[in-house]
Write a protein that binds this DNA or RNA. Structure first.
Lengths: 210, 210
DNA sequence: CCATTTTCTTAACCTCGGTAAAGGGTCGTG
DNA sequence: CACGACCCTTTACCGAGGTTAAGAAAATGG
């Protein structure tokens, strides 16, 4: 890729303001040097969202993915009864997008809403495909992420089928304790697939046990 | 791949006994000619299982995948309370295996048990990797299947979170009606994530409605 | 710093589905 | 044919969690 022509920089951001994990991925794991990294960065644009703003809504066609530099989002769907169901929370070092819509090119079903003021680096589907063709490792990396995502979805499915609400709560406490500092409990309840009053009951039950 | 040396045939089966979808995939979609197809087939071996036999058990390391030529299996896990939870049924034209164990090389959590006498074509991880290196399209196809599988797992997750047991039952009736002819209801109940008596109640409720 | 919105908890009530056990039906094999 | 194995349904009981509403606490924005 050393000889490639990249478009002029669009991304105007100091490197010390970029999540170290992002830099590390491309410099250490992909072995980009400074020039290559800067070139790669130029495919992205920085976007800022206020709390409550949406990155994506059901019905939108997802034409880009975005890296969360800082901030926090909730991804949810709305079922036939009009209830919101939180599928996951994305925070620093996660990628945003509606997988299915991105690949099918059809309108998606996912809402992605900011839970905090959030900064993301966005890259269009088109640009990502170009970079993928130039950088074989990028394709490998993405295919690996896809596999991880398939495994993660299956294991979350298993958890939902085999664990009680209380067990899912304790698991979340263990895995992503920071969520409880950053996200209202009602959304956590939704993620656990229970209603807010049930989560309250569950929590007070656990408090009494101790 | 025309000039490749393949190992001598191991698979002794008449082509008319092979599911047409299997032949079509490799001949039409991959564009294999007869010799190439026969060579590719030679990486597989035919295995026969009796009803109730296992292809895989929790704790096993999954070192192969297998194409279901005819027959039917249930894939399930066992939770902490010792309950079996059916994750899916695999029948003609499905592939068997424990995804996660296959990739991680660690012991898996999945049981795959025959619901009928079943014939599969098995290919080892090792041989599949070799074929993938010789046949780029195979890798593409597999990467595509991975993506589909990730999307399917996510959509099944959404269904489990947003639909009632009755809705999931009707959906299954619509999508895979043949399952009701081939699989005992208690396993279908487990797949729907309810107990057998609940499925009975649900069914008699639906009968009365009509 | 106040007004408004949002969030969390609690209560009362009710439904759905889990559990266990029993009975009847069906299938296959000796 | 007869036996056992397996399967399906039904019953009765119980508990977890949904629903709705209300009030207190906290956070947000001007």
């Amino acid at each position: 890729m050393r000889s490639l022509q990249f478009p002029p920089y669009r991304m105007n951001i100091r490197e010390e303001d970029i999540n170290p994990k992002f830099v590390q991925l491309f410099k250490s794991i992909f072995g980009f040097d400074q020039i290559e990294f800067d070139c790669f960065l130029s495919s992205f644009r920085v976007r800022h969202f206020k709390r409550k703003e949406f990155f994506l809504r059901a019905g939108d066609i997802c034409l880009a993915k975005a890296y969360v530099n800082h901030g926090c989002t909730r991804n949810f769907v709305i079922d036939e009864r009009g209830h919101e169901k939180v599928m996951c929370f994305a925070m620093e070092d996660w990628w945003l997008g509606d997988f299915e819509s991105y690949y099918s090119g059809r309108p998606g079903t996912t809402f992605i809403q900011m839970m905090e003021d959030t900064e993301v680096f966005e890259i269009s589907k088109e640009d990502f495909l170009k970079r993928e063709q130039e950088i074989p490792k990028l394709k490998q990396w993405y295919s690996y992420k896809m596999m991880r995502s398939a495994i993660a979805a299956k294991s979350r499915l298993t958890e939902l089928e085999t664990l009680t609400a209380e067990e899912r709560y304790l698991l979340l406490m263990e895995r992503q304790p920071e969520i409880f500092q950053r996200v209202p409990l009602k959304y956590i309840a939704s993620y656990l697939n229970i209603e807010a009053p049930s989560l309250s009951r569950l929590r007070s039950r656990l408090l009494k046990k101790k």
